[in-house]
Protein backbone atom coordinates (compact mmCIF):
# COMPACT_ATOMS: atom_id res chain seq x y z
CA UNK A 1 0.00 0.00 0.00
CA UNK A 2 1.30 3.43 -0.93
CA UNK A 3 1.42 5.78 2.00
CA UNK A 4 2.11 9.49 2.04
CA UNK A 5 5.51 10.59 3.24
CA UNK A 6 6.01 12.81 6.23
CA UNK A 7 8.79 15.27 6.98
CA UNK A 8 9.16 15.55 10.73
CA UNK A 9 10.70 19.02 10.79
CA UNK A 10 7.93 20.39 8.58
CA UNK A 11 5.31 18.86 10.84
CA UNK A 12 6.85 20.44 13.91
CA UNK A 13 7.03 23.82 12.20
CA UNK A 14 3.35 23.55 11.32
CA UNK A 15 2.51 22.65 14.91
CA UNK A 16 4.51 25.60 16.17
CA UNK A 17 2.52 27.82 13.86
CA UNK A 18 -0.81 26.45 15.16
CA UNK A 19 0.42 27.22 18.63
CA UNK A 20 0.88 30.90 17.82
CA UNK A 21 -2.89 31.23 17.50
CA UNK A 22 -4.09 33.41 20.31
CA UNK A 23 -7.43 32.23 21.70
CA UNK A 24 -8.93 34.88 23.91
CA UNK A 25 -12.21 35.97 25.49
CA UNK A 26 -15.41 34.59 24.02
CA UNK A 27 -13.65 32.25 21.64
CA UNK A 28 -11.68 30.85 24.57
CA UNK A 29 -14.87 30.17 26.55
CA UNK A 30 -16.56 28.59 23.56
CA UNK A 31 -13.50 26.54 22.75
CA UNK A 32 -13.16 25.29 26.30
CA UNK A 33 -16.80 24.22 26.35
CA UNK A 34 -16.33 22.34 23.12
CA UNK A 35 -13.18 20.74 24.50
CA UNK A 36 -14.83 19.62 27.70
CA UNK A 37 -17.65 18.00 25.77
CA UNK A 38 -15.06 15.95 23.89
CA UNK A 39 -13.46 14.33 26.91
CA UNK A 40 -13.50 10.59 27.35
CA UNK A 41 -13.06 10.28 31.10
CA UNK A 42 -10.91 7.26 31.52
CA UNK A 43 -9.92 4.77 34.17
CA UNK A 44 -7.88 1.82 32.95
CA UNK A 45 -5.99 0.44 35.85
CA UNK A 46 -5.46 -2.93 37.46
CA UNK A 47 -6.74 -1.45 40.69
CA UNK A 48 -10.04 -0.22 39.22
CA UNK A 49 -13.07 -1.08 41.36
CA UNK A 50 -16.82 -0.67 40.98
CA UNK A 51 -16.65 2.25 43.36
CA UNK A 52 -14.09 4.02 41.23
CA UNK A 53 -16.12 3.46 38.07
CA UNK A 54 -19.28 4.73 39.74
CA UNK A 55 -17.52 7.92 40.82
CA UNK A 56 -16.19 8.48 37.34
CA UNK A 57 -19.65 8.01 35.83
CA UNK A 58 -21.07 10.56 38.21
CA UNK A 59 -18.31 12.99 37.40
CA UNK A 60 -18.89 12.54 33.68
CA UNK A 61 -22.48 13.70 34.08
CA UNK A 62 -21.78 16.45 36.61
CA UNK A 63 -18.43 17.93 35.78
CA UNK A 64 -18.90 20.92 38.02
CA UNK A 65 -22.15 21.49 39.85
CA UNK A 66 -21.30 25.10 40.62
CA UNK A 67 -21.19 25.99 36.98
CA UNK A 68 -24.44 25.87 35.04
CA UNK A 69 -24.30 25.12 31.36
CA UNK A 70 -21.19 22.97 31.48
CA UNK A 71 -21.66 20.07 29.09
CA UNK A 72 -21.22 16.47 30.11
CA UNK A 73 -18.15 14.49 29.15
CA UNK A 74 -18.42 12.56 25.87
CA UNK A 75 -17.84 9.11 27.25
CA UNK A 76 -16.49 7.06 30.08
CA UNK A 77 -13.79 4.64 29.08
CA UNK A 78 -13.33 1.46 31.13
CA UNK A 79 -12.24 -2.17 30.92
CA UNK A 80 -14.89 -4.62 29.55
CA UNK A 81 -15.73 -5.99 32.98
CA UNK A 82 -17.02 -2.57 34.07
CA UNK A 83 -19.09 -1.84 30.98
CA UNK A 84 -22.32 -3.16 32.38
CA UNK A 85 -21.97 -1.09 35.53
CA UNK A 86 -21.01 2.06 33.63
CA UNK A 87 -23.94 1.62 31.27
CA UNK A 88 -26.30 1.44 34.24
CA UNK A 89 -24.75 4.43 36.00
CA UNK A 90 -24.87 6.61 32.92
CA UNK A 91 -28.41 5.63 31.98
CA UNK A 92 -29.83 7.95 29.36
CA UNK A 93 -27.50 10.86 30.20
CA UNK A 94 -26.11 10.80 26.66
CA UNK A 95 -22.64 10.01 27.96
CA UNK A 96 -21.34 7.04 26.01
CA UNK A 97 -19.68 3.97 27.38
CA UNK A 98 -16.40 3.15 25.72
CA UNK A 99 -14.54 -0.04 26.46
CA UNK A 100 -11.01 -1.01 25.65
CA UNK A 101 -10.70 -4.49 24.22
CA UNK A 102 -8.40 -6.80 22.23
CA UNK A 103 -5.99 -7.63 25.03
CA UNK A 104 -5.48 -3.98 25.92
CA UNK A 105 -2.91 -2.47 26.20
CA UNK A 106 -0.32 -4.79 24.61
CA UNK A 107 -2.58 -6.57 22.14
CA UNK A 108 -0.46 -9.66 22.64
CA UNK A 109 -3.03 -12.40 22.30
CA UNK A 110 -4.78 -14.53 19.72
CA UNK A 111 -7.41 -13.19 17.36
CA UNK A 112 -9.98 -15.51 18.96
CA UNK A 113 -9.37 -14.00 22.38
CA UNK A 114 -9.50 -10.48 20.95
CA UNK A 115 -12.79 -11.14 19.19
CA UNK A 116 -14.24 -12.68 22.36
CA UNK A 117 -13.02 -9.66 24.36
CA UNK A 118 -14.67 -7.31 21.89
CA UNK A 119 -17.95 -9.21 21.77
CA UNK A 120 -18.11 -9.33 25.53
CA UNK A 121 -17.73 -5.55 25.73
CA UNK A 122 -20.34 -4.92 23.06
CA UNK A 123 -22.79 -7.41 24.53
CA UNK A 124 -22.30 -5.74 27.91
CA UNK A 125 -23.53 -2.52 26.35
CA UNK A 126 -20.46 -0.68 25.12
CA UNK A 127 -21.26 2.07 22.62
CA UNK A 128 -17.66 2.30 21.54
CA UNK A 129 -14.77 -0.14 21.44
CA UNK A 130 -11.16 1.03 21.70
CA UNK A 131 -8.92 -1.67 20.22
CA UNK A 132 -5.16 -1.78 19.96
CA UNK A 133 -3.28 -2.72 16.82
CA UNK A 134 -0.58 -5.38 16.87
CA UNK A 135 2.45 -3.13 16.86
CA UNK A 136 4.92 -5.99 16.62
CA UNK A 137 3.31 -7.21 13.43
CA UNK A 138 3.16 -3.66 12.08
CA UNK A 139 6.83 -3.01 12.75
CA UNK A 140 7.66 -6.36 11.12
CA UNK A 141 5.99 -5.10 7.99
CA UNK A 142 3.01 -7.46 8.27
CA UNK A 143 0.56 -4.78 7.29
CA UNK A 144 -1.98 -7.29 5.96
CA UNK A 145 -2.08 -8.95 9.35
CA UNK A 146 -2.81 -5.60 11.00
CA UNK A 147 -5.44 -4.78 8.40
CA UNK A 148 -7.19 -8.14 8.69
CA UNK A 149 -7.23 -8.02 12.46
CA UNK A 150 -8.89 -4.60 12.47
CA UNK A 151 -11.48 -5.85 9.95
CA UNK A 152 -12.29 -8.84 12.14
CA UNK A 153 -12.69 -6.68 15.23
CA UNK A 154 -14.84 -4.24 13.29
CA UNK A 155 -17.11 -7.13 12.33
CA UNK A 156 -17.26 -8.17 15.98
CA UNK A 157 -18.24 -4.65 17.04
CA UNK A 158 -21.64 -4.77 15.44
CA UNK A 159 -23.28 -1.38 16.03
CA UNK A 160 -20.54 -0.11 18.35
CA UNK A 161 -18.15 2.46 16.95
CA UNK A 162 -14.60 1.21 16.64
CA UNK A 163 -11.65 3.31 17.77
CA UNK A 164 -8.33 1.94 16.63
CA UNK A 165 -5.41 2.72 18.92
CA UNK A 166 -2.16 2.95 16.97
CA UNK A 167 0.02 3.30 20.08
CA UNK A 168 2.11 5.86 18.29
CA UNK A 169 4.70 5.90 21.07
CA UNK A 170 5.80 2.49 19.80
CA UNK A 171 5.71 3.29 16.10
CA UNK A 172 8.98 5.26 16.11
CA UNK A 173 8.39 7.50 13.10
CA UNK A 174 5.74 9.79 11.72
CA UNK A 175 5.84 7.85 8.46
CA UNK A 176 4.70 4.82 10.45
CA UNK A 177 1.98 6.84 12.15
CA UNK A 178 0.68 7.86 8.77
CA UNK A 179 0.82 4.33 7.39
CA UNK A 180 -0.90 2.83 10.43
CA UNK A 181 -3.61 5.50 10.18
CA UNK A 182 -4.31 4.59 6.58
CA UNK A 183 -4.43 0.88 7.33
CA UNK A 184 -6.83 1.45 10.21
CA UNK A 185 -9.18 3.69 8.23
CA UNK A 186 -9.30 1.36 5.25
CA UNK A 187 -9.84 -1.65 7.50
CA UNK A 188 -12.95 -0.13 9.06
CA UNK A 189 -11.98 2.17 11.91
CA UNK A 190 -14.58 4.76 12.86
CA UNK A 191 -11.99 6.60 14.90
CA UNK A 192 -8.24 6.52 15.01
CA UNK A 193 -6.63 7.06 18.38
CA UNK A 194 -3.05 7.79 19.31
CA UNK A 195 -2.33 5.90 22.47
CA UNK A 196 -3.26 3.56 25.27
CA UNK A 197 -1.92 5.94 27.87
CA UNK A 198 0.37 3.17 29.06
CA UNK A 199 3.32 4.05 26.84
CA UNK A 200 5.31 7.28 26.81
CA UNK A 201 5.10 9.44 24.87
CA UNK A 202 1.36 9.29 24.46
CA UNK A 203 -0.49 11.84 22.33
CA UNK A 204 1.66 14.61 20.90
CA UNK A 205 0.67 17.43 18.59
CA UNK A 206 2.88 16.30 15.68
CA UNK A 207 1.43 12.79 15.82
CA UNK A 208 -2.08 14.14 16.03
CA UNK A 209 -1.50 16.46 13.09
CA UNK A 210 -0.23 13.57 10.96
CA UNK A 211 -3.34 11.55 11.85
CA UNK A 212 -5.66 14.48 11.15
CA UNK A 213 -4.06 14.90 7.75
CA UNK A 214 -4.54 11.18 7.08
CA UNK A 215 -8.20 11.56 7.98
CA UNK A 216 -8.52 14.55 5.68
CA UNK A 217 -6.92 12.72 2.77
CA UNK A 218 -9.20 9.71 3.33
CA UNK A 219 -12.15 12.07 3.33
CA UNK A 220 -10.94 13.71 0.12
CA UNK A 221 -10.76 10.30 -1.46
CA UNK A 222 -13.92 8.64 -0.14
CA UNK A 223 -16.14 11.29 1.41
CA UNK A 224 -16.12 9.23 4.58
CA UNK A 225 -15.51 11.06 7.85
CA UNK A 226 -13.31 9.35 10.42
CA UNK A 227 -13.03 10.49 14.03
CA UNK A 228 -9.85 11.34 15.89
CA UNK A 229 -8.89 10.76 19.49
CA UNK A 230 -5.58 11.88 20.95
CA UNK A 231 -5.19 10.15 24.30
CA UNK A 232 -2.80 10.58 27.18
CA UNK A 233 -0.64 13.52 28.10
CA UNK A 234 -3.15 16.28 27.36
CA UNK A 235 -3.78 17.82 30.74
CA UNK A 236 -4.12 21.57 30.31
CA UNK A 237 -6.81 23.77 28.83
CA UNK A 238 -4.20 25.63 26.80
CA UNK A 239 -2.99 22.49 25.08
CA UNK A 240 -6.56 21.31 24.50
CA UNK A 241 -7.29 24.58 22.69
CA UNK A 242 -4.18 24.09 20.58
CA UNK A 243 -5.55 20.69 19.56
CA UNK A 244 -8.86 22.31 18.60
CA UNK A 245 -6.98 24.83 16.48
CA UNK A 246 -5.28 21.94 14.68
CA UNK A 247 -8.61 20.26 14.04
CA UNK A 248 -10.24 23.47 12.90
CA UNK A 249 -7.50 24.34 10.43
CA UNK A 250 -6.90 20.82 9.16
CA UNK A 251 -10.35 19.25 8.95
CA UNK A 252 -12.63 22.21 9.40
CA UNK A 253 -15.59 22.75 11.61
CA UNK A 254 -17.45 19.52 10.77
CA UNK A 255 -15.04 17.71 13.08
CA UNK A 256 -15.30 20.16 15.97
CA UNK A 257 -17.75 18.13 18.02
CA UNK A 258 -17.63 15.03 20.15
CA UNK A 259 -18.98 12.82 17.46
CA UNK A 260 -15.76 13.26 15.50
CA UNK A 261 -13.19 14.34 18.01
CA UNK A 262 -12.36 13.15 21.52
CA UNK A 263 -9.74 13.74 24.14
CA UNK A 264 -8.67 10.66 26.06
CA UNK A 265 -7.86 12.38 29.31
CA UNK A 266 -8.70 12.37 32.98
CA UNK A 267 -7.12 15.43 34.52
CA UNK A 268 -7.90 17.73 31.59
CA UNK A 269 -11.49 18.32 32.67
CA UNK A 270 -10.55 20.05 35.88
CA UNK A 271 -8.03 22.35 34.26
CA UNK A 272 -10.62 23.40 31.71
CA UNK A 273 -13.15 23.96 34.47
CA UNK A 274 -10.68 26.13 36.35
CA UNK A 275 -10.13 28.19 33.22
CA UNK A 276 -13.85 28.55 32.63
CA UNK A 277 -14.35 29.60 36.24
CA UNK A 278 -11.59 32.14 35.83
CA UNK A 279 -13.13 33.53 32.66
CA UNK A 280 -16.52 33.99 34.38
CA UNK A 281 -15.26 35.18 37.79
CA UNK A 282 -12.05 36.92 36.74
CA UNK A 283 -10.24 35.15 39.58
CA UNK A 284 -7.52 32.53 39.14
CA UNK A 285 -8.63 29.19 40.57
CA UNK A 286 -7.19 26.58 42.96
CA UNK A 287 -7.31 22.82 42.59
CA UNK A 288 -9.13 22.23 45.85
CA UNK A 289 -12.32 23.77 44.52
CA UNK A 290 -12.74 21.14 41.79
CA UNK A 291 -13.56 17.51 42.54
CA UNK A 292 -10.98 14.90 41.74
CA UNK A 293 -12.46 11.55 40.80
Amino acid sequence: MKSSLIDQVGVEERVARFNTRSIKKQSKVEGLKIAISMIDLTTLEGKDTEGKVRQLCYKAQHLHVDMPGVPTAAAVCVYPTFVKLAKKELGNSGVKVASVATAFPSGQSTLAVKIADTKFAVESGADEVDMVISRGEFLSGNYNFVFDEISEIKAACGPARLKVILETGELATLDNVRRASEIAMRAGADFIKTSTGKIQPAATQPVTLVMLEAIRDYYYETGIMIGMKPAGGISTAKVALQYLVMVRETLGNAWLNNHWFRFGASSLANDILMQLAKESSGVYQGGDYFSKD
Partner: peptide, 13 residues
Protein backbone atom coordinates in the same frame (compact mmCIF):
# COMPACT_ATOMS: atom_id res chain seq x y z
CA UNK B 1 -16.13 16.14 -0.26
CA UNK B 2 -15.56 19.68 0.91
CA UNK B 3 -14.07 20.95 4.11
CA UNK B 4 -15.69 23.83 5.95
CA UNK B 5 -13.32 26.38 7.40
CA UNK B 6 -15.71 29.27 7.82
CA UNK B 7 -18.67 28.40 10.05
CA UNK B 8 -18.61 27.52 13.73
CA UNK B 9 -15.92 28.20 16.29
CA UNK B 10 -13.46 30.93 15.36
CA UNK B 11 -10.87 33.23 16.86
CA UNK B 12 -11.75 36.47 18.58
CA UNK B 13 -9.55 39.49 17.82
Amino acid sequence: PKLDFTSGWGYAP
